[in-house]
């Protein structure tokens, strides 16, 4: 079947209707979205929704690495342009991955808080809504970044990137680190070494201090223009 996206107007209606749909989010479903072609547009890409069945979690085990890999295996062919389209991820969180989304991001009992949480994790809002908040888009974007890392498997890259929130946020919110493959790979390799050892680099101050030093070097050296060997040398001097 073809990959489907919600129409923009459908996303807006859903977003506006969150307060009225709270029970659906808690225990119901949005199967009607899939059944009504008037609410959807079809992309040109072939898509097998059964591949998404591997994405699941429990309240005690979020299975972040496994779920990132599963989303990546199912949707690795998405272009970053399409992966930046809220209509796609809103459709997936409401239809194929509704159960996963509400287990991973439980809906609070208080209605006001629930509305905010649903809008954060079932839709895409704000500058970092894709890679941080939307229940499914964040899995894809983390896998997308980690798949580009050199010298580490996707599974290992994800394991170290996902180990501590503070480290992850520090990497993903710094374009110098997350956008430059050599720098990103070098930092992940340092994290992997620490992960396999005493994990001291995952301590908030240790990692921040190393990143500050790397930023200082990046202030006078154009790191993206250097070879991976040269970048490794500078990263070694900071970590």
């Amino acid at each position: 079947m073809k990959l489907q996206l919600l129409k923009k107007a459908t996303v807006k209606d859903l977003y506006d209707s969150v307060p009225a749909n709270l029970e659906r989010y808690r225990i119901g479903d949005f199967a009607h979205l899939k059944a009504d072609p008037g609410l959807l547009i079809e992309s040109q890409h072939e898509f097998d929704p059964s591949a998404l069945a591997l994405i699941h979690c429990t309240k005690d085990d979020d299975r972040e690495v496994e779920n990132c890999v599963a989303v990546w295996n199912a949707l690795h062919w998405l272009s970053p342009y399409l992966a930046r389209d809220e209509r796609l991820w809103t459709f997936l969180t409401h239809v194929y991955l509704l159960e996963y989304s509400r287990t991973r991001w439980p809906i609070p009992k208080d209605d006001e808080t629930a509305i905010k949480e649903i809008r954060r994790h079932f839709f895409v809002s704000g500058g970092r809504g894709f890679e941080r908040d939307n229940a499914v888009a964040r899995l894809w974007w983390m896998a997308y970044l980690c798949d580009k890392a050199e010298g580490l498997s996707l599974h290992d890259s994800l394991k170290v990137l996902l180990y501590k929130y503070d480290v992850r946020a520090n990497i993903m919110e710094r374009p110098t680190t997350s956008q430059s493959i050599h720098v990103f790979s070098a930092v992940l390799k340092k994290l992997k070494k620490s992960y396999d050892g005493d994990k001291s680099l995952f301590e908030r101050e240790a990692f921040r201090s190393a990143m500050r030093e790397l930023n200082l070097i990046g202030g006078t050296k154009l790191l993206p223009a250097l070879s991976s060997r040269e970048v490794d040398h500078f990263v070694d001097s900071c970590f």
């Binding site: 974007w141 956008q179 993206p224």
Partner: peptide, 8 residues
């Protein structure tokens, strides 16, 4: 570079 798509 493109911040939205992490392209560089």
């Amino acid at each position: 570079s493109c911040r939205d798509t992490y392209f560089r």
